[in-house]
């Protein structure tokens, strides 16, 4: 679509658009800066990891989280994020079931809990294939599941956002909540990593 335009061309057009919209009173530069700062400081996979560590250590919280993710993460001052309110649904991995999340139609994602989405999540390769051949896709991420494990792929086609609750690794009973949170990588919250 850029027809060979360089980054500098786009950059100039974006600046021009911002100036026009400010001149016409439609947006305010300061407000844009605030939006960006809020996004960059508020969206982090550490948030999702914190939710997971709490669920691993507090059975009542875990029950609430699986029943109503939106309300449970609000207890921690968190939300799924995004430009409009979104429902959060947390899906739990067990020894028999593995969950993995995608948005085949665009790139919907609980940005506040998982941080800015990785390029692969937005790629046509991931979006096209994970609903069709999740086992092969997971193997490309180095995840080999037992044949008996049932995989569910969650294709976020509306305003629900999904986060995976991974299984707590064995040998971690001595760890406290912050130490457990540090064990949880972003991909485990999408389902493309296991612990």
């Amino acid at each position: 679509m850029t027809g060979g335009h360089t980054d500098a061309d786009i950059s100039r057009r974006v600046r021009r658009l911002e100036t026009l919209l400010e001149d016409r009173g439609i947006v305010a530069g300061a407000a844009l800066d605030e939006t960006l700062d809020a996004f960059l400081s508020g969206a982090s996979p550490a948030n999702g990891a914190r939710v997971v560590a709490r669920a691993w250590t507090d059975a009542d919280f875990r029950t609430r989280l699986l029943a109503d993710g939106t309300s449970a993460v609000a207890e921690l001052g968190l939300s799924a994020g995004g430009v409009q309110p979104q429902r959060l649904r947390v899906v739990e991995n067990t020894p028999d079931t593995h969950n993995v999340v995608v948005c085949t139609l665009c790139s919907c994602y609980p940005v506040r809990l998982l941080g800015p989405s990785p390029s692969w999540y937005k790629s046509e390769a991931y979006r096209s294939r994970v609903v069709r051949e999740p086992r092969a896709v997971l193997e490309e991420f180095g995840v080999r599941l037992p044949d008996a494990t049932r995989i569910t792929v969650w294709d976020s086609t509306s305003e629900t956002r999904y986060m995976v609750l991974p299984m707590r690794p064995s040998g971690t009973s001595h760890l406290d909540e912050p130490a457990l949170a540090r064990l949880v990588p972003r991909n485990a919250l999408i389902g493309t990593a296991v612990l």
Binding site: D7, W120, A125, R132
Partner: peptide, 23 residues
């Protein structure tokens, strides 16, 4: 694109930069 063939392997590099240019 769900189910469409031909996009090849996934580049799983963990690219976490939210933006690659100021624009």
């Amino acid at each position: 694109v769900g189910g469409l063939q031909g996009f090849g392997p996934i580049d799983t590099a963990d690219d976490t930069e939210p933006f690659h240019a100021d624009w």
